[in-house]
Design a protein around this nucleic acid. Structure first.
Lengths: 148, 148
DNA sequence: TATTGTTATACTCTATAACTATA
DNA sequence: TATAGTTATAGAGTATAACAATA
């Protein structure tokens, strides 16, 4: 017979995967309705909240190869949400900077995204959310120490 | 100022996404080391645990279009893990069935997968796992009722 | 007519490698 | 030499649509 720990671990894996999948589908659908895929949203959100970034740094944060970053930045630039800015001190470096249009776009989109999340998380009350945050943070942090 | 509920919901979204991503990377890496992608593992696991299935039914469970199912089944069949079986009562239908080789493969792989999950979830004790399961199940189920 | 599965095709996203230009 | 970004190319995985066989 399987151990209690094994049964629990498998169960936790399943409910965590399913909850994440359900949430991810909601948010992805929301982004797509605005013409963005999750990667594009991630880049736009980074620039919106953290300011201009060198392309390479964006690639590191979003975990994307340099050639792929060029592709994503090109797309966002074509839509007018960001533009490239040469670094004055190192001519190899290019910054991505959000435009006024991108700023306006995100000023509307991000609060909607937040409201959607509030809606999605409504099933849990404040205490339960705190518990879930605590447990998932603990779990997530521990995994980074694993050698997989 | 942002409401407490909004801050909590956003935080919960982030820690849930991160925990899932970390776990997903572990399991995906494990599958890939065995030459499977997550979709292939999902199909194989379905046949291993639930027995033969019509291709269309597999597509519904894994959420894959019929053309894509053909592609995945072809790959698993080429590796000798499954084979196609004609339905005797409805000649339109084809079942996918796990082979002896696939059975043997999964008999070894699945317990390893479970052990990996036990390892991954070790950061939480038994009570914490139960709490997390309870909260995530509640959350996951509630989202299906949403209209997104 | 509706359904199952296949084929052919195209698209999106990502990675890799070779390259240019700087440092 | 090493680094930043671009270009060209390839590949995986998925979707779509047209199709053949069967119900």
């Amino acid at each position: 017979m399987k151990s209690e720990e094994l049964t629990q671990s498998l169960k936790l894996f399943i409910v965590l995967s399913r909850a994440n999948k359900a949430i991810h589908e909601c948010t992805t659908q929301f982004f797509q309705a605005k013409g963005l895929n999750p990667t594009e949203f991630a880049v736009l959100e980074l620039l919106f909240h953290k300011g201009s970034q060198p392309l390479q740094k964006i690639g590191n944060k979003i975990l994307l190869a340099s050639g792929s970053i060029t592709y994503v930045i090109d797309k966002l630039e074509k839509r007018g949400f960001i533009h490239r800015v040469n670094c004055p001190t190192d001519r190899r470096v290019t910054f991505a900077e959000i435009t006024a249009e991108g700023e306006e776009f995100m000023s509307e989109l991000f609060p909607e995204h937040e409201n959607q999340l509030v809606d999605i998380m409504k099933a849990l009350d404040s205490d339960e959310k705190d518990q879930a945050i605590h447990l998932l943070k603990k779990l997530g942090l521990s995994i980074k120490d694993l050698s997989y």
